[in-house]
């Protein structure tokens, strides 16, 4: 089943619905648990009855034996809210080979949505942004929500520049309930700026995860001779020689990644570097671990 998590294989699937199902089913099967029962059917704990609780959840067998009233709780009932913030700036369309960073981000988002709504029965929402908020789908568990989210992902085409401050500030207005916020971007911005813009999300009690999507060529670029590089967002051009890409560039991108990871952790956020050549389970595993930690 591992091949269903391979980005190269997934690039051949055009339907996000099918893609997400493939990924999630493949991922769950890899956990050695039956997808039919689901996590929501699993017993979690007993809780003393308090007035106002739904009597349908009282464990009457226990009451008969002990004459005490307890509610039986399941994992599926610990609902969470997943909100994915997807960077759709021009830099996300870079690729050294399929898939593009944008597609890879879509795969992750779609898989997360499928896992959250179909398997965990969590509410899931989507915000697509560049230097503005271009699309907002409110988190919900209503029927058809998954289709709406996939449609939103389909419409998210890279354009314009990246600006974290403005869309994140705007996003805070939509957050009324604590949950998991996943920010998917290539983060071509100063780490300080990124963390400062996303830290307020944490203040509301959200679990914030930064998924840093990069192409392998962006981490270890290979230049065969001097090349004229064009910035996809600004269209600025610069001539670069292989020696620079081999030495200075690598040092700087490594420092950038490390600085971003460090500052994110300092601010109480999780950070995950995802290369477009990596399988998708890393992202799903991160989501599940956060969800469990939040219950």
């Amino acid at each position: 089943m591992q091949r269903f998590l391979d980005p190269n294989v997934l690039a051949g699937i055009s339907s996000l619905d099918l893609l997400a199902k493939t990924v999630v089913d493949g991922f769950v099967a890899g956990l050695h648990r039956s997808p039919d029962f689901g996590f929501s059917q699993e017993f979690a704990e007993y809780r003393p009855y308090v007035p106002g609780d739904d009597l349908r959840h009282v464990d009457w067998n226990l009451f008969a034996r002990t004459e005490r009233c307890y509610l039986k709780r399941y994992r599926g009932e610990t609902n969470s809210q997943l909100t994915v913030l997807l960077d759709a700036s021009n830099s996300m369309q870079y690729t050294s080979g399929p898939p593009t960073k944008m597609d890879y981000a879509r795969y992750i988002a779609a898989s997360l949505f499928y896992l959250a709504i179909h398997n965990q029965r969590d509410a899931a929402g989507l915000i697509v942004f560049d230097n503005e908020v271009r699309e907002y789908i409110r988190p919900s568990t209503r029927p058809g929500q998954l289709a709406r989210l996939f449609a939103g992902l389909e419409r998210a085409e890279p354009q314009a520049l990246t600006d974290f401050a403005k869309p994140l500030k705007h996003f805070q207005n939509f957050l009324h309930r604590r949950g998991i916020v996943i920010l998917i971007s290539d983060f071509y911005e100063e780490p300080e700026t990124i963390v400062r813009a996303s830290a307020p999300l944490r203040f509301h009690g959200n679990e914030v995860v930064l998924f840093h999507i990069l192409d392998p060529q962006e981490v270890r670029p290979v230049l065969r001779g001097s090349a004229l590089l064009v910035d996809l967002e600004t269209d600025r051009r610069i001539e670069v020689i292989p020696e620079y890409a081999k030495t200075t560039y690598r040092t700087r991108i490594d420092a950038h990644i490390e600085q971003l990871r460090s500052r994110a952790q300092t601010a109480g956020m999780d950070y995950q570097l995802l290369l477009t050549s990596q399988p998708l389970d890393t992202a799903l595993r991160e989501y599940l671990s956060l969800r469990q930690a939040g219950n």
Partner: peptide, 24 residues
């Protein structure tokens, strides 16, 4: 006649590369 090569960002490519290019 070198064709331009797109990159996500020139954030980490600095002007210093120019002098290096002259050296090369």
């Amino acid at each position: 006649r070198a064709t331009p090569r797109p990159v996500s960002s020139l954030m980490f490519f600095e002007r210093g590369a120019q002098s290096s290019t002259r050296h090369r």
